[in-house]
Write a protein that binds this DNA or RNA. Structure first.
Lengths: 115, 115
DNA sequence: CGCCTTAGCAACCTTCTAGTTGCATATGCG
DNA sequence: CGCATATGCAACTAGAAGGTTGCTAAGGCG
């Protein structure tokens, strides 16, 4: 199971870092929010009233896509992007594990003090 | 409730982006993992066997600190860092909201098709 | 067909970011 | 006191990230 102890799951950590980084930008969070409405949207639609160029939006979408947060499919002359919530759920689990570990460690330390 | 529609909670989004970005780095994820063990650790300890300079680690810790993920307190000649899981829980909630919105939107769209 | 819309690609610019090195400080210890 | 340890601060570099502009290609529509 590759749980040898010294490994620490570096590959997994790299992946998580990628997804976190993809979400670490205000513009991209807006895009994710827009796409969370369910319906696939074209780049022009996603641009909306933003002051940014279409190209900038495209780049952000590529970043999200590389992180697996978004999928694109071309229909006619427009390419429509839709959200894939799977990586977000992975992050959620990751965060849960970390703060759970924190909580457990805390109570363990506390009981040490109390005894 | 400030739910006017055009605002979309930009300030909150900016904050979330900051925290996501802070976690969007492999080295910083390692630091968080190390600190999740509960006990406050010094910079030298946190550096461990990393091939990076102490300074690099320090900078990463500052980033985590700016995002509120970590607090530091100087004791004697060493400054000890400890984890603050609160921002991580905020992110967890944020992610839950988004994927929940996604799920609901999906079933809504699906029932439209089926009817 | 001719024109507008929606995109992709590439080059370029500017601003952060990750890391390094060098030097100055303060705390512990024998 | 004198030296090793543990940091902090500042200047600097290389490379990535966010954005822009210009040009080209392909799908829709009157």
């Amino acid at each position: 199971m590759s749980r040898a102890g010294s490994d620490t799951g570096a590959a997994k950590r790299r992946h998580h870092a990628t997804v976190f980084a993809a979400l670490g930008d205000e513009t991209r969070l807006s895009l994710v929010a827009a796409l969370s409405a369910g319906e696939p949207r074209s780049i022009a639609q996603l641009r909306g009233g933003a002051k940014m160029t279409r190209q900038a939006i495209t780049k952000h979408l590529r970043v999200l896509q590389s992180a697996g947060l978004v999928r694109s499919a071309r229909t006619g002359r427009e390419s429509r992007f839709e959200l894939d919530p799977a990586p977000m759920n992975e992050l959620k689990e990751y965060l849960s594990r970390v703060s759970q570990q924190w909580d457990q460690a805390l109570s363990r330390l506390k009981s040490l003090v109390e005894s």
